[in-house]
Design a protein around this nucleic acid. Structure first.
Length: 545
RNA sequence: GCGCCUGUAGCUCAAUUGGAUAGAGCACUAGCCUACGGAGCUAGUUGUUGUUGGUUCAAAUCCAACCAGGCGCACCA
């Protein structure tokens, strides 16, 4: 749906409100919705209902008055050719009906400009940094990380499509407690290899991979004090490979160790001290986060002199802004939600608007096999990994399934369903539509003619298909507003359904040359839209299956 | 105890961020191949939206309380 026609309609309504001398706060935020059902038109305004109380008039009467005023003026505007009808329906909705001419022009635009016609710039020139996954380099990526990777990558694609300057970043926790324990875990396994009898503590890393790293470290004669770094580096390379194989790339890998060396943490502390936001108590150094909405103040330097995780994080997020980003998006697992307030407090402490830091909590995914939950235990190192899911169902199905549900909702991922090649599996349903169109376009007889007469498209299914295509930009708006790309998967299933229905009722390739050419244009428009959506999801768009 | 998330058809989930008769798929039943890909389509059945109040012209959606499930609540990361 072009932004243009929406704003045209909104100014038409506004002019009518002025003419009728209606003023109310409700008039300020005029908004158009896409009705749930096509029989209620193509765009709908609820302004009459919202004005009802203030004006002490029935919504339908207000709507009638507005429509009368609009119809009087519409001939002088560009909408004359694009709006077929304006009707009051239901409780007082004002429904706008597109003309066939409008639909044809929009389809024509998509054919001539390709996916560029679907693009709208909503960025306002903003630069956004999306930080996601950021898993500690102490083991393979889990399915929880996998979902974060899929959501973050897709969200970045969407924001990029909408004109934002987007960078993807992985914060690398390459020093501290976890790395020390990792090093000690490897050290113990080496001792075991030498033949010593060991007791392996429960909080050490249990996985088989620790033994593999121990063997390698022993061969390479890595010094004991370097074992942590060696293991972390080794595992990081595994993680990088897993992400590449999942189709997720990062622009920057931000090392915590480097951050520590840079002196930026001390500088951040100095700033906070100058604002009187740090104080000592019981031998520890505290950040006055409660002054900025946190439940209580937080320790940044422990009484033993070491830093908590918050210390580098404060400097890290200050640094993100200093690098020129005006919007930060962090994707976190649900176990970190208690951390949101203190980090936002740190942003506010530097005089920045905490709203420019968006924390997206990505809920967990549960893995099922034929409806039976697959048990996971991170402690024993026996969890299902991204690698296992990829090996079993492939990139396309894995990405689609991780993106199929609202990000804030739990997700049930059934490995057997993801492998099925039928209608139960939505990724195949969508890809099948794309392949089917590609197959028709490949026919040896008719070529795509960009100047086809689109006014021949008159069937209900044909017009519905165009209308569905035009909803694409609306979906983009919702993804931006919610910072959640999942709706693309829902939309693509709906668009594919519209296509399959059309396909079943109407032949594309017929004896009627003109009609054939217009229908070829129609399905190419559908193909471009599906392809654009699949690109955003990071899923292949097969010509054949 | 406090905080966050969730609760919609037998199952998995939608519902255009407060709109019109709450919709899809699976499953079940009955149909559609001398047709561009049947990996598809058509028709039928399925509801006290966890409960009770409140706000609103309008509530699955917002607010309050309660019920049930998940996850947090460190001088761990």
């Amino acid at each position: 749906m072009s932004e243009n026609i929406q704003s045209q309609i909104i100014s038409l309504i506004k002019d009518s409100l002025v003419e009728l001398e209606i003023t109310d706060s409700a008039c300020e935020e005029l908004q158009l919705d896409i009705p749930a059902e096509t029989r209620f038109g193509d765009l709908s305004a609820n302004i009459a209902m919202r004005l009802s109380k203030a004006l002490k008039k029935a919504p339908r009467d207000i709507a009638e008055g507005l429509i009368k005023s609009m119809l009087k003026r519409i001939d002088k505007t560009i909408l004359k050719d694009y709006i077929k009808d304006i009707k009051v329906e239901g409780a007082g909705f004002i429904n706008f009906y597109f003309s066939d001419k409008y639909l044809c022009e929009q389809l024509d635009l998509i054919l001539k400009k390709g996916k560029e016609a679907l693009r709208i710039n909503l960025s306002g020139g903003r630069a956004v940094l999306i930080e996601f996954v950021s898993a500690n380099p102490t083991g393979s990526l889990s399915v929880a990380h996998a979902r974060q990777a899929a959501v973050g990558d897709c969200l970045a694609n969407v924001l990029d499509f909408l004109g934002f300057k987007v960078k993807r970043e992985y914060y690398l926790n390459d020093e501290g407690n976890q790395i020390n324990i990792l090093g000690k875990s490897v050290e113990l396994r080496i001792n075991e290899l030498i033949g010593e009898k060991i007791e392996f503590p429960e909080n050490y890393y249990q996985g088989e991979y620790i033994c593999d790293i121990a063997k390698l470290a022993k061969e390479k004669k890595i010094k004991t004090e370097d074992l942590g770094d060696f293991a972390a580096n080794f595992i990081l390379n595994i993680i990088k490979k897993e992400l590449v194989d999942f189709g997720v790339r990062f622009d920057t890998w931000y090392s915590q160790k480097e951050l520590g060396k840079s002196g930026k943490i001390n500088k951040a502390f100095e700033y906070l001290k100058s604002k009187d936001l740090l104080y000592e108590q019981e031998g520890a150094l505290w950040f006055k986060s409660s002054s900025f909405g946190d439940d209580k103040d937080r320790v940044v330097v422990k009484s033993d002199g070491s830093q908590t995780y918050l210390a580098p994080d404060i400097a890290y997020h200050d640094d993100k802004y200093r690098r020129g980003f005006d919007w930060l998006i962090n994707l976190w697992g649900p176990d970190h939600h208690g951390y949101i307030n203190r980090l936002k407090a740190s942003v506010a402490a530097f005089g920045r608007d905490p709203k420019t830091l968006e924390i997206v909590i990505v809920q967990l995914a549960s893995i099922f096999r034929n409806g039976v939950p697959v048990q996971m235990s991170t402690r024993r190192g026996e969890f299902i990994t991204l690698r296992e899911v990829l090996d079993e169902v492939g990139v396309d199905a894995a990405r689609f399934f991780f993106l199929m549900r609202r990000t804030s909702s739990h997700l049930d991922f059934d490995l057997e369903v993801a492998k099925k090649q039928n209608a139960e599996n939505p990724v195949y349903y969508v890809q099948y539509a794309h392949a089917r169109i590609a197959s028709i376009l490949r026919n040896g007889e008719f070529k795509l003619d960009k100047d086809a007469d689109l006014s021949l498209l008159k069937e209900k299914e044909e017009l519905n298909l165009i209308k569905k295509i035009l909803q694409f930009s609306y979906i983009m708006n919702v993804c931006l507003a919610t910072q959640d790309p999942y709706m693309i998967t829902v939309y693509l299933q709906e668009l594919s359904e519209c296509f399959h229905k059309f396909y079943d009722l109407h032949r594309v390739l017929t004896d009627d040359l003109a009609l054939t050419q217009s229908r070829l244009v129609l399905i190419e428009g559908v193909r471009i839209t599906i392809a654009t959506g699949l690109d955003l999801l990071g899923i292949s768009k097969p010509e054949k299956m």
